[in-house]
Computed example of a mutant assay.
Amino acid sequence: MIEKIITINNELCKQDGLCAQICPMKIFIQETKKTPHIEKTNHCVLCGQCLAVCPASAIHHSRLRKEDLVQIVEPHPVNEKAMMTLIRQRRSVRVYKNKEIPADVLEEIADSCGYCPTGAHGQQGWVRNITIVSGQENMKRILDLTVEYMRMLKSKLEGFVVNYLSRWIPEIQGGLATLPDISLRLAQYEKGRDVILYNAPAAIFVHAPRNTSTPQIDCDAALYSMMLLAHTKGLGTCWMGWVQNAAAGFQVKSFTALRDFLKIPTDHRVYGALIIGYPKIQLHSIPPRETRINWIN
């Protein structure tokens, strides 16, 4: 573990206590109106909030460089109407053009998830872990391995023990409820039709260390941020649960072929996956969606 050294320049410090107020780990302590003192720097999660809020640039952090900070010129760059329109227009896409996505576009989309609302990954700070797969041969490999996983899961769900235990365990009942969907997709695969990856030209996987506090939530937020940015670039995306499960070996721990193909670190797990490409069909309207709100005042 690399030691974190944090200091405050007494001559520059305005003694406003902003760093003490904003630090999520309470490393900066200001008990009276004077320069805050610093405690337990090993708890720092490298969020950079202290550097970003200090008006006098009085804070020095050994792991974060001031020159890497980007100045905020427009506090609200997108108005609420435009943002709501973006959220509403983003739809799941399952019909794609046979057109490759430039590598730099995929990387820019992947980079965006570093700014989504997620928890720090322990001492790694705010690092997000993304695996991008593109190319017809690689995508075919993902499809084949996902099918292999689904066949193994189907066999397990159809077994006597699982069906017997399902009488008392709701989670198993939920698993059995997926059998019709699994059977449908496998049947289509046998006929040469892809209703798993939908012939998309690329896929993005999000993975995180297993020992972090909220890895599933972190990766969910990362996926959604990439989906929104992809939409602004004229790209379509679709959240892929079966591919994600295959990469994680969900309910079939012996299946590691897809995670091995993706070269996922042994201490990580894949918590999210999406396919991405140029939509072949353009929607002319937005289907209605309902939100049920319950107020507690």
Rank of each mutant, 00 (worst) to 15 (best):
E190T: 01
T178E: 06
F255R: 15
L143Q: 05
W168C: 01
V195K: 00
L157P: 13
P209H: 03
A202N: 02
P180R: 01
H231L: 09
F250S: 09
K191R: 15
A246M: 02
G249C: 10
V162T: 11
V195G: 00
A202G: 00
V195W: 00
S225R: 09
Q244G: 01
P201H: 02
D260N: 14
H231D: 07
R259I: 07
A203P: 00
W242D: 03
N163R: 15
A248M: 05
I217A: 09
S213L: 12
L145G: 10
G159F: 11
N199M: 06
T256N: 08
T214M: 08
G236P: 05
R185V: 07
N211E: 13
D218Y: 14
F255H: 15
A257E: 08
P209L: 05
L165F: 11
Y149T: 13
P215M: 03
L186Y: 02
R167G: 00
H207P: 05
T237N: 03
D218S: 11
W168K: 04
N163W: 07
W168A: 08
Q251T: 01
E148H: 13
M227W: 07
L258T: 05
Y189G: 04
L179N: 04
A222V: 01
T232E: 10
Y198S: 03
I204M: 10
I196M: 15
I169A: 05
L223S: 10
D144H: 13
V252L: 04
